[in-house]
């Protein structure tokens, strides 16, 4: 059975229909990416799955439970964790305190410590700056911290919202490499990206979203090869 099933999701911002019947599913162990242009509804989809926005219609099932009417903290506790767009780290707290907040809902101290160490192994740069104020980190380091912080929550499904946003190409490659490593270590990932090129290289399957509707779906390699996607998102002519 699928880990996450989103079925016919509609979301409104006031009178504006941001999502018009979005359906997608994520299987255990996959990296699934949701690509699309600005304002297509990518972040709205993630926010709705996280419980931050109420859906008007549709259902969200995660790990066998219906979650679309749950409070956000309960959804996090069930293992569905988001690293939000624009990093959203706690700038006035130290890096270490940020990581501890990732484990806010957990009480198993030894396991938290192990997960924290594992996350820091993935991001040695973050380890170097443990006692530094998070706001003093560079953009790339902040993104690494945001992902590490989400990992400390020990997600069954990690949702990443635009992890490449505003980063230098070199850093983008590093981040995507780590995303692959996180997945190989057993975490399922739902990745929202504008950088379709990188996202399609990392993902197993992909969805293309346009003005609140899923336009295409399929294996990432297939989509990367399709003319339509190449034209619209990969800059090919």
């Amino acid at each position: 059975m699928s880990l996450l099933v989103v079925d016919n999701l509609s979301v409104f911002y006031g009178a504006i229909e941001a999502l018009r019947g979005v359906s997608l599913h994520v299987e255990q162990g996959e990296v699934v990416t949701l690509i699309g242009a600005n304002g297509a509804g990518k972040s709205t989809t993630l926010r709705t799955i996280s419980g931050l926005l109420p859906p008007k219609t549709g259902t969200i099932r995660f790990d066998g439970q219906t979650i679309h009417n749950w409070q956000p903290h309960r959804i996090v506790k069930s293992g569905l964790v988001q690293a939000p767009e624009g990093r959203k780290i706690f700038a006035n707290l130290t890096v270490d305190e940020n990581l501890q907040l990732g484990a806010f809902l957990r009480t198993d101290r030894t396991a938290i410590r192990a997960d924290r160490d594992r996350a820091l192994e993935l991001f040695p740069r973050v380890r170097e700056r443990l006692n530094q104020q998070a706001g003093t980190l560079s953009g790339g380091e902040q993104q690494m911290l945001a992902i590490a912080r989400a990992l400390v929550a020990r997600p069954k499904l990690l949702m990443l919202d635009e992890p490449s946003l505003g980063l230098a190409p070199q850093l983008v490659r590093t981040i995507f490499q780590v995303i692959r490593e996180i997945n190989l270590a057993g975490t399922t990932i739902l990745l929202v990206e504008q950088n379709a090129n990188m996202a399609l290289q990392v993902a197993h399957r992909a969805y293309v979203i346009e003005v609140g509707r899923i336009r295409m779906e399929g294996p990432a390699a297939e989509l990367a090869a399709s003319d339509e996607v190449r034209k619209a998102y990969l800059g090919a002519h």
């Binding site: 996280s50 988001q82 305190e97």
Partner: peptide, 20 residues
């Protein structure tokens, strides 16, 4: 206390971390 500070810093991120 850290949860309180996280609410001050960024409510949205606090929610994403599972803070009620």
């Amino acid at each position: 206390g850290r949860a309180m500070i996280s609410v001050r810093e960024d409510e949205f991120a606090a929610q994403a971390m599972g803070v009620n």
